[in-house]
Design a protein around this nucleic acid. Structure first.
Lengths: 213, 213
DNA sequence: CGGACATGTTTTACGAGTAAAAGACCTGGT
DNA sequence: ACCAGGTCTTTTACTCGTAAAACATGTCCG
């Protein structure tokens, strides 16, 4: 049980529990006289979202600032934080955390046994984390492991019947929940968003990580 | 130093160190009368990004699956993970983690003293986390605190000269880095992405969190 | 054959974040 | 005045993830 709740952003919300905000954005040294706009906090994001307000503040402090990257990266980070929080609700009811579900999901969707290493790559987490999660999921009877007779270094992990049932049971609630969360967006907006995000993600994944900058 | 590197996704990459993947996506048992339009490309986008592959697998297992939400949420989560990793590089060189930078940045961009509570709201983190970070940043001489004579429960936190210099020094590298990371995207795509993300984020922030689903 | 090196997984030590409780302080009603 | 209850912050106990080292095998090549 970890039932998350209460979204942040608001004014006097519990706040205790959200994840991340951006706020990253450089500018030229220059730094002029302090151009503080009392905007304070009484009035939340004048316009649309919290990132817009943050960007506005940075621009006031560093007038020459190119806020372009922030407008995208800050929003993606923030959306991810809120979406993950929202997403966790149905999973929580099933007694699963998202990383745990990701692991079970990888086994379910590939439909075959996977090694811990493959699971790590599949869920984008570290091998050590996978080891720990497998231990817990195994103790709960959701996954089983057996040694590979070929290569005794590796293990083969697979879903148990209960594990498969768990995934099959949670999945509908999960997707329904995601749909509900996105329902505010018009179908048109959703349609435009997908190819753009795919493009961005493709670039991010296709490149040698950080160019070492 | 925390110089992250090696993107995952690949085939036999180090992988050890990335953050998160989606993989979450339910389906209505029988897929209601075709609601979602496949959004864009007619083909299941097989080769572009890792999310596309995940979606393909889910569809194979649950043929009626409505992958719409996954295509957006999965990609946002994944983009956020990769972007954050990439973003950390310049900060790491300055000896800062992103949460630490977010805190310093909040002080810098608001241009005034903030209380721990305000900082927590501003950086979307818990009060306890702010307390810890302030302790560290204070020990490093980047922030100062003084009690508020009016209300002795609250503290007033502000940047020291060194703290301000740190932010001003890191900011340019940070933004340059972000620009470089996004450079793969055409200006047009970036232009389209911003309003869409703003729209989505506005919805997410404006609503009562998860409708309790 | 045998050891050097590569590979797959687990263990260890530790840092960071959270929830909940505790502590310190205001405030409004009687 | 006093205290019940609210607000702001810190403390406590705990979980989780990571990096790096430790293990346990495999593989290659002299």
């Amino acid at each position: 049980m970890r039932a998350t709740e209460g979204l942040p952003a608001g004014e006097g919300r519990p706040a205790e529990e959200v994840r991340r905000a951006d706020g990253g954005a450089p500018a030229d040294e220059a730094l002029p006289a302090g151009a503080e706009v009392p905007t304070g906090e009484g009035a939340p994001a004048s316009g649309r979202d919290t990132v817009a307000e943050v960007v506005r503040q940075w621009r006031a402090v560093y007038p020459g600032l190119d806020t372009g990257p922030m407008e995208i990266i800050g929003r993606i980070n923030r959306c991810a934080a809120l979406l993950q929080q929202a997403e966790d609700a149905p999973l929580g009811r099933a007694g699963l955390t998202r990383p745990e579900f990701d692991l079970l999901g990888a086994l379910r969707r590939t439909g075959r046994e996977l090694t811990p290493g493959e699971l790590a790559r599949e869920t984008f987490s570290s091998g050590a984390a996978v080891t720990k999660r497998l231990k817990q999921l195994g103790a709960r009877g959701l996954v089983e492991r057996r040694g590979d007779p070929r290569d005794r270094r590796v293990a083969r992990v697979r879903l148990t019947g209960a594990g498969r049932d768990t995934v099959d049971g949670v999945l509908p609630a999960q997707l329904a929940h995601e749909s509900a969360v996105l329902s505010g967006l018009g179908g048109a907006a959703r349609g435009e968003l997908v190819p753009l995000l795919a493009e961005l993600l493709g670039r991010l994944e296709g490149r040698p990580g950080t160019p070492r900058a």
